[in-house]
Computed example of a mutant assay.
Amino acid sequence: MSLQNSLTNFATRLATETNNLRNQMGALASLSTSDKASLVAAINELKGLIDTATGINDTATALSSTWSSTKINAEIIAARDALVNGAPGALDTLSELATALASNDGDIATILTAQAKRVRTDTASQGLLPAEQANARTNIDAVAKTDIGNPDIDLIAVFEAGLA
């Protein structure tokens, strides 16, 4: 089954279920006062939680805690140090790495050869052979255009048809 067929079936089913819910619930204007009050209670509960939220806590790592700028800067420095991973001072910047690579043309040629076979995003047509295209799709877990159906299908029309 193509992606187009799957999306069409999904949109139809979603529209049908939405239509069923709309018919069961009726208009929003018919909500009772107690239903509307529960929404206000939920908003007030959320406001209370926000009002009682704790301030800056550099020792906690929970999603509900907030670090100071000093702690954030220390974490950035630690991440940078981990990225450099103890490289000598002569190789800890991009400029120094470029200089080191330029001194060994054999490595550069190997890198350029490998780089030429990458899947490019800066050109509309790279000129890959069919086997290379298939390998690229496999490597990035993609499907061919012919496998997904019509990407221009009007899903709104499918949805509205399901509501009818």
Rank of each mutant, 00 (worst) to 15 (best):
R22V: 12
G106H: 01
I156H: 05
A100M: 11
A37F: 06
V143P: 03
A79Y: 04
K71W: 06
F10S: 12
L91Q: 09
I108T: 04
N57K: 04
D92C: 03
L3E: 12
I56F: 05
G86Q: 04
N20A: 15
A157V: 01
T99P: 01
S68V: 12
A74S: 13
N9D: 15
A62M: 02
S6C: 08
A136V: 01
D58K: 07
D152H: 07
G162D: 05
R120S: 07
S6I: 15
A164N: 14
T52Q: 09
A27Q: 08
I108V: 14
G89M: 04
E75C: 10
N23A: 13
Q133E: 09
V158C: 05
N104W: 02
A136P: 00
A142F: 05
D107F: 08
L21N: 15
K47R: 06
A62V: 06
L129Q: 04
K71V: 13
A15D: 06
D92I: 00
F10E: 13
A124T: 08
Q133K: 09
P130T: 07
F159I: 05
A114S: 09
Q133G: 00
V84D: 08
N104D: 11
T99Q: 14
T54Y: 04
L28Y: 09
T93M: 04
T138V: 08
G89S: 15
T12S: 14
A78L: 11
T12G: 10
A41W: 01
P130I: 05
I50T: 06
S30H: 10
S103H: 02
L3Y: 11
T121P: 02
Q24D: 14
L28H: 04
D154C: 08
G106D: 12
A100G: 04
L39F: 13
E45N: 11
R137I: 01
A100T: 08
S32F: 03
A60W: 02
L83E: 13
L3D: 14
K71C: 11
L14T: 06
S32T: 15
T121W: 02
L14Q: 05
I153G: 01
R13N: 15
T121G: 10
S68F: 13
L91V: 05
K71F: 07
A41G: 10
S95E: 14
A53W: 03
A124S: 11
A142S: 09
T12C: 06
V84Q: 07
V84M: 03
I156W: 04
S6M: 15
